[in-house]
């Protein structure tokens, strides 16, 4: 079976910036992860995430992305959509964000064929360990979106029975 990667990106110390990491924590807490699926809290590791990206066929990323939509809005983007946007903001080749690391992997001929980025619009990116009230409910929605995308690939994640409140 093809190897699938699920990656949460973001800075856990900056409130909604940590959205991707919160999604990963919720996911592993509530679901059994099949053997061919690798889940990673990527934090702010940047270039160090390249090996993970290069070892999967499909990659799903949870992240926080600024837009003019209301805080907490969930969207799913292809890599092309995000890349074309970052072209306008990247002022130098040294801004190696996630998309740039992915492009570097592509240049090496090792990028995953299919990349989807599930994003939430932040309300607050000042110092803080918990999500803002506007963004907190988006975690479950983002996970639902991931589950649907995985289902399209024929991968079903089972919910753990023993999760409290489940």
């Amino acid at each position: 079976m093809d190897r699938i990667g699920i990656l949460g990106a973001g800075n856990l110390l900056l409130t909604d910036e940590g959205f991707g990491v919160h999604c990963i924590r919720r996911l592993v807490e509530q679901y059994r992860i099949p053997e061919n699926v690798a889940v990673l809290d990527g934090g702010t590791a940047g270039i160090m995430l390249a090996p993970f990206m290069e070892e999967v066929k499909s990659l799903y990323i949870f992240d926080c992305v600024n837009s003019e939509e209301p805080a907490g809005t969930i969207r799913c983007f292809s890599q092309e959509e995000l890349r074309s946007a970052s072209m306008h903001t990247s002022m130098s080749p040294h801004q190696l964000g996630l998309m740039e690391v992915l492009d570097l992997c592509r240049l090496r001929g090792k990028a995953p064929g299919d990349v989807k980025v599930i994003t939430a619009v932040p309300a607050n990116i000042s110092t803080g360990m918990e999500l803002s009230p506007q963004v907190a409910p988006a975690v479950d929605k983002a996970i639902d979106m991931l589950l649907r995308l995985l289902e399209e690939k024929g991968v079903i994640l089972e919910r753990k029975e023993s999760v409290s409140g489940a």
Binding site: A9, N11, N66, S67, E68, L82, A85, G97, L98, I125
Partner: peptide, 15 residues
Amino acid sequence: MAQRIVVDPITRIEG
């Protein structure tokens, strides 16, 4: 819509 997005790496760097 994608044109309006800013993936802002500034918030995730150490300093």
